[in-house]
Every structure is written in C-alpha cells, then in structure tokens.
Computed example of a mutant assay.
Amino acid sequence: MRQCCSDCGYPLKTCLCQDIAAVNNQAEIIILQHPKEASHAKNTVRLLTHSLAKIKIYVGKSAIDFSSLQELLRSQPLNTVVLYPSPNSQVLNITEARKTKIERVIFIDGSWKQAYGMWKNNEWLNRFPFYKLALPNAGQYAIRKSKLDISLSTLEAVAYSLNTIEQLDTKPLLQLLTSFTRRWQSFVQRSKDKQ
C-alpha cells in the first residue's frame, strides 16, 4: 500500500508540502464540486485547500445537495458573486471588482459538461451576479485537456479572480500548480518507462 504524507495527503514520492505557501485571501472562496471531480486524482481544489485562508467546498450536483450552503448564504449575507461564463456574465476586472466590493466568490468545479449541468440544476445561483475572466491565454494546467481555449483549472480561475478582486499575489498558487503538474508528468513518464 502506498504511503501518503500526513500533511498534504499526496503519496510520499510526490509530497507537495515544500511547495505549499499560505495565501491570505480576504474574499471567501466557495467551491461547488461535482462528486466525480471530488474523487479525481488530478483535481486542483485539493491544492487550494492547503493554501487559501478562506475556502469552503460543497460536493454535489443539484440544489438539494447544496441546501446547507444556501442556508449559510441566507444566514451570513455577504456581497457574493458567481464566477462562471454564463451568457449573462460580465467580465471581471479591477474596476468592476472595486465597485462591487466582492466578499464571497462561488466557483463550479467539474468538467465543462459537469459544470454546465450543475449551473442548470441550481437556479438559486442566479440570484447572484455572474462574472467571467477575460484572459488572453489558455490555462497552464497541462495534465488535463479541454477542447475549449478558455479552459482553466479551478485553481487558476481562483488565483486570477483573487488577483483581480484583491490585487493579491497569487503566484504561490500558480507555482503550486506547476509543481503538481511536473510531479504528475514525472509519475506518468516513470510508469511508461516501466512498461
């Protein structure tokens, strides 16, 4: 049985502890995570939980799965937005972020198909403003592929959003993603070499 690091949870051979740096975000990050994504070995939300000061993850697909979150949002009202490229999403930029004074950001974590289904099955999200990122380049997460040019890992989307909302230095998050990607590619290469 493979031994895992008691701190980061990754196998000892690919332990990421030396690459994890604390990121003291002020805006609360909420992740709605598809159940299949939660168990995916290459999901990046797990990396975020080791770095961010304020993050909560809710696993599910439908509104009933997120009933505890909906209650939290009602009982603790903060200026909340959803980061998802719906047809009505506005581009998130520094000017808009300052004007809106965003305190909480909800992200949908899953494949494009899974995320779209979650958005459609959770109409309660539509009571919040929707934003999307305007990025000139595709994501850097090379170990998972997408046919869409605008694809980002959830970690990248969170990092770019926090950089825009708080002008927070999120390089530690992106460096953690780079380290994770290199270790994964190295693991895959070693497996190929053994065949």
Rank of each mutant, 00 (worst) to 15 (best):
L83C: 07
F130M: 11
T95Q: 09
L73R: 09
E103C: 02
T100R: 15
G117E: 00
C15A: 01
V45L: 04
V158D: 04
V105D: 10
N79A: 07
C17D: 06
Q26M: 11
A138M: 03
R182M: 11
F180V: 05
G110Q: 01
T100N: 13
P77R: 10
Y116P: 00
C4G: 02
T164H: 02
V82G: 06
C4H: 15
V81R: 08
C4I: 12
K171L: 09
E123R: 02
L32T: 06
N25K: 09
N163I: 00
V188C: 02
L48C: 04
Q33R: 05
Q175F: 04
F66Q: 06
L176P: 05
A63H: 01
I106H: 06
C4T: 12
R104S: 10
R127T: 14
L168W: 04
N163C: 07
M118I: 12
T178L: 12
P172K: 13
G9Q: 12
Q76H: 08
T14Y: 09
C17F: 09
S68R: 12
F180S: 04
Q140E: 15
N137C: 05
E103H: 02
K171Y: 02
Q175Y: 02
V158R: 03
N137T: 13
Q33E: 10
F180G: 04
I150H: 12
T164G: 04
H34D: 14
C8L: 14
K61F: 00
P77Y: 08
R104K: 13
K194M: 01
M1Y: 08
Q189P: 00
N121L: 13
T170H: 04
Y131P: 09
T14D: 06
W119T: 10
F128R: 00
N25C: 08
P11M: 05
R104C: 09
L12H: 02
L125E: 00
K13V: 03
A159C: 06
L52Y: 11
S75N: 15
T14H: 07
Y131D: 11
A21D: 05
Q114N: 15
N79K: 14
K13W: 01
Y116V: 01
G60L: 00
L92A: 10
A138Q: 12
E103G: 07
V82F: 13
S146W: 03
Q140L: 14
A115H: 06
R46Y: 03
Q76C: 06
C15W: 01
C4P: 00
M1P: 09
I94F: 13
L83I: 15
T44F: 08
V91Q: 03
C4R: 14
C8A: 13
R46C: 08
Y141C: 01
K147T: 14
R74M: 07
H40N: 13
Y141Q: 02
S146T: 10
R74L: 11
S153E: 11
A157P: 10
E123L: 05
N93E: 07
S6V: 13
D65M: 06
L52R: 13
S191P: 00
T95F: 02
R183K: 15
D19Q: 15
T80W: 04
